[in-house]
Amino acid sequence: MKTVLLLSTYPIASPRHGGQVRVANIAKTFGENGWSVTHLAVYEPEGYPPSSLGANDVSFPAGSPFRKYKGTYVPLINDLLSGEFAASEQGGFADILKKLPPVIDVIHVEQPWLWPLVLKIRQMPQHANACLIYGSQNIEAPLKQEILDSYAIKGAEPVIADIEALERKAALEADIAVAVTQADYDILQAWGRRNHCLPPMESRLGRRSRSCSPAGKSVCRSLRGFSMLPAPTRLISRASMSASAVHWRAYRRIANWWWSAVCVSTLRQRCVTVAGDN
Rank of each mutant, 00 (worst) to 15 (best):
Y134A: 14
G135E: 15
S136R: 09
N138L: 11
A141V: 05
A141Y: 09
K144F: 12
I147P: 02
I147M: 14
L148Q: 10
D149W: 03
Y151R: 08
I153F: 07
I153D: 05
K154M: 09
K154I: 12
G155T: 01
A156H: 15
A156T: 13
E157N: 12
E157M: 10
P158S: 08
P158M: 10
I160T: 08
A161P: 02
D162I: 09
A165N: 07
L166E: 05
L166M: 10
E167V: 06
R168G: 07
K169L: 12
K169T: 11
L172Y: 03
E173I: 01
E173M: 08
A174M: 04
A174E: 05
D175R: 01
V178A: 03
V178F: 14
V178N: 07
D184H: 12
Y185H: 08
Y185E: 02
D186T: 04
I187Q: 07
I187E: 05
Q189K: 13
A190P: 02
A190W: 02
W191V: 01
W191F: 12
R193N: 14
R194E: 15
R194P: 01
N195R: 14
N195H: 11
H196E: 06
M201K: 01
S203K: 02
L205D: 14
S209V: 07
R210F: 03
S211T: 12
C212Q: 08
C212Y: 01
P214D: 12
A215F: 02
K217T: 09
S218D: 07
V219D: 00
C220W: 09
C220I: 10
C220R: 08
S222D: 06
R224G: 06
F226K: 04
M228V: 03
P230E: 07
A231K: 10
P232F: 03
T233I: 02
T233G: 00
T233S: 06
T233C: 01
R234E: 09
L235P: 03
I236Y: 06
I236V: 13
S237K: 11
S237T: 10
R238T: 07
R238E: 03
S240F: 08
S242M: 06
S244R: 09
A245M: 12
A245R: 11
V246K: 05
V246L: 11
V246P: 00
H247F: 12
W248Y: 14
W248S: 06
W248I: 12
W248V: 06
A250L: 12
R252F: 01
I254P: 00
A255C: 13
N256P: 00
W257F: 15
S260C: 14
S260R: 05
V262M: 14
C263Q: 15
C263H: 05
V264N: 13
V264I: 15
S265N: 11
S265D: 04
S265Y: 05
T266G: 14
L267W: 03
L267S: 11
